[in-house]
């Protein structure tokens, strides 16, 4: 049967194009324009070519922040994805407890990001915080404002607590979508629990896990509010991630040119890694990668 082509459908795309133009393309163009100029104020600017890019690329503080960011995002993915899948596998499939578990899991996702930081500041305070005080009473000496390791542990705990539910909910949706016939066939064949997970559940979750990994990578790579509230980038520069350093340059020092050059490099890194993850996850399990 011949397909009917109706190009008028393209008209329906125009509103999205307009929204994307104003929310992404025009700001991106402006950042590119800023990155090649020294901006003194409205109408006062001087062309500097690639000077800001050279300055930013040679900045050792940016290199440190970049490695810190990769470490943070790597840990986030390594912990949150398997943990989220495990929680989804352990969640009830039917009955009244499903709604209860879903609501409890969704709670951390409903809290504003800066409030999350505040909650964890109080929770981990060595003097009055439930976690900080308890650990100190055990004689372990915990203070996220003084020790870089403690600051990282607190940040990771906060991040895992905040965002693992998202991975779990996505994985749960993927699991619920698998028809019972697959499990019945596996049972008839005498498949082990591991074989069911490896050859039925995991491949069927590929789509939702692709979204989960992409979202968690991009979100963790762009993280700002929670570490800014919790540690302010410290102690020292121990938790100064790319976005915190970028805001210091753009808002703290009002160096718009270097901040714009920094933003473009930041954008290109996120774009490259998101594309690689997307391609790998689309091709894994299809005999293409």
């Amino acid at each position: 049967m011949d397909k009917t082509e109706n190009n008028r459908a393209w008209l329906l795309v125009i509103p999205v194009l307009l929204v994307v133009a104003f929310s992404a393309i025009i700001p991106l163009m402006t950042v590119v324009n800023f990155s090649v100029q020294d901006i003194f104020g409205p109408g006062e600017r001087v062309w500097v070519g690639t000077e800001w890019f050279e300055e930013v690329l040679a900045d050792t503080r940016l290199h440190d922040a970049l490695w810190r960011q990769f470490l943070f995002s790597g840990l986030v993915l390594l912990i949150e994805i398997p943990l989220g899948v495990m929680i989804a596998l352990a969640m009830p499939r039917e009955g009244w407890s499903v709604s209860l578990v879903l609501v409890v899991l969704a709670l951390p996702l409903l809290i504003p990001w800066n409030v999350i930081g505040t909650i964890w500041i109080i929770f981990t305070r060595p003097d009055i915080g439930l976690m900080g005080n308890t650990i100190n009473r055990l004689g372990l000496g915990f203070d996220h404002t003084a020790s870089p390791l403690d600051a990282w542990v607190t940040l990771m705990l906060m991040e895992v607590w905040h965002w693992t539910p998202l991975v779990a909910l996505l994985a749960y949706a993927g699991l619920k979508a698998i028809p019972d016939a697959y499990f019945q066939a596996a049972q008839i064949d005498g498949a082990s629990r591991w074989a069911v997970f490896r050859y039925i559940q995991l491949p069927k979750m590929r789509g939702v896990l692709t979204i989960a990994i992409l979202l968690r990578f991009m979100d963790s790579f762009l993280i700002y509010a929670e570490p800014f509230v919790l540690t302010g980038g410290g102690p020292g520069n121990a938790t100064t991630f790319l976005s915190i350093y970028l805001v210091k340059i753009a808002v703290g020092q009002f160096d718009l040119g270097p901040a714009a050059a920094f933003s473009i490099i930041y954008f290109l890194i996120v774009l490259l890694f998101s594309w690689i993850f997307y391609q790998v996850l689309q091709n894994v399990g299809r005999g293409r990668a």
Binding site: I26, M29, T30, V32, N33, V36, Q37, P42, R45
Partner: peptide
């Protein structure tokens, strides 16, 4: 479009 701080090279690029 002054707020966008256009320059000739970036305009040609885009």
């Amino acid at each position: 479009l002054e707020w966008m701080a256009w320059t000739w090279p970036t305009a040609v690029f885009f």
